[in-house]
Structures are given as structure tokens and as C-alpha cells.
């Protein structure tokens, strides 16, 4: 029996999910890290993490959400190790031309990717769910095990902090 079967996915399973979901994971990593090379690293690290401890993916009710969490952790690990701060108010090539879900505010998405650098893990998870996943506060509260009031307060705080990273654009929406 392959050694990774007990707690992780098999190599073939990882390959299959890479083929099916890889584009989504890489895209997300690029949003979070603003760097294609680092995004590649994050995707690779996420695959390794799934190989060693991703068996729960088989039973995940929301497969992509599970994988997004995995790539988020990989990206957060890289963010923690980064000394260089992303350019503020600057839309990197990695985000240019990126399709943005209609429910998202592109400027807030851009600001969030800059803000992540200065948040702790919980703040990052909240910011990603609110401004990258576009989840409403009720969903965030459920997923993080927080009260809706707490989520509301923290999201408001994150929104204010994110505004500081918005590009200097007089036409930006409030």
C-alpha cells in the first residue's frame, strides 16, 4: 500500500486533482501572492500537503473550497516567509486581465492581496473569505466558527485597512 494512503492522497489522486483544479488553484495563488513564481511554489507545496495529509479531500462536500483552503495555507506560509512587501496601489501583471467574479469588487480584491502581508492567519482567512471568495458574513461565521457579530466587526476593520491599499484612483468606488 502506498505510504500516503492512510492520511494523504495517492500520487494518482493528486495528479488527477491537479489536472482538474490546478488552474483554479494557481489563479488563486497568483491573486494572493501577486507573483507567478511564488504562485507556482504555493501550488506545488499544496500538492505536497495533499499527498501527505489530504485524505479528507475524498469526502469533502465542497471540493474546490477544500482545495482553496489548502492553497491558501501554502500561500500564507510563503507570505510569512517573505521579507519583501508587495507594491501598494500597483496592479501587477499577474492580476492584469484576470477575470473577476461579478460579485467581487476588483479594487477591494487588489487591496486585499496587498493587505494580506500585514495580517495574521485568522485575519488572512477572514479577508480571503470576505473579499476573494465573496462569501457573506453568515457563511464566514459558519465556516470559521465565529459569531456573526464578530465577523461583522472584523470584516469592517479589514475593509478599512484594505482601503489604505487602494490605488490612488479618484474614481474608485467608496
Amino acid at each position: 500500500m502506498p505510504p500516503s494512503v492512510a492520511t494523504g492522497l495517492s500520487p494518482d489522486e493528486v495528479r488527477a486533482l491537479y489536472t482538474r483544479y490546478g488552474a483554479f488553484l494557481l489563479r488563486r495563488a497568483r491573486v494572493l501572492l501577486r507573483d507567478a513564481s511564488l504562485a507556482d511554489d504555493a501550488l506545488q507545496n499544496a500538492c505536497v500537503a495533499l499527498l501527505r495529509g489530504g485524505a479528507a479531500f475524498r469526502e469533502a462536500k465542497e471540493p474546490l473550497a477544500y482545495l482553496y483552503r489548502s492553497i491558501d495555507h501554502a500561500a500564507f506560509d510563503i507570505l510569512r516567509s517573505r521579507k519583501r512587501k508587495p507594491l501598494e496601489g500597483h496592479e501587477p501583471e499577474e492580476l492584469a486581465g484576470l477575470a473577476i467574479a461579478p460579485s467581487l469588487d476588483p479594487l477591494m480584491l487588489l487591496a486585499t492581496s496587498a493587505l494580506l502581508h500585514e495580517l495574521d492567519d485568522e485575519g488572512r482567512a477572514l479577508a480571503v473569505m470576505a473579499f476573494v471568495d465573496g462569501l457573506d458574513q453568515g457563511e464566514i461565521a459558519t465556516r470559521l466558527g465565529l459569531s456573526r457579530l464578530t465577523v461583522n466587526k472584523r470584516v469592517q476593520g479589514l475593509r478599512e485597512r484594505a482601503r489604505a491599499h487602494l490605488p490612488q484612483n479618484p474614481g474608485a468606488p467608496p
Partner: peptide
């Protein structure tokens, strides 16, 4: 790679309890 990480993965058979839809930490 799976062989490389075997010492970590081969700690104990995990119980087949309800899987948790949380993502694993990378390292």
C-alpha cells in the same frame, strides 16, 4: 516524494471518523 515523506505519514492509522473539510497545513 511519497517515499520521502513516509516517516511523517506512517505514524498511526487514522481513525475513519468523519473527515473534516479543512485544508491541511503545508508544513
Amino acid at each position: 516524494l511519497a517515499v520521502e515523506i513516509e516517516p511523517n505519514a506512517k505514524t498511526e492509522e487514522t481513525s475513519p471518523e468523519a473527515p473534516r473539510p479543512e485544508a491541511p497545513r503545508a508544513e
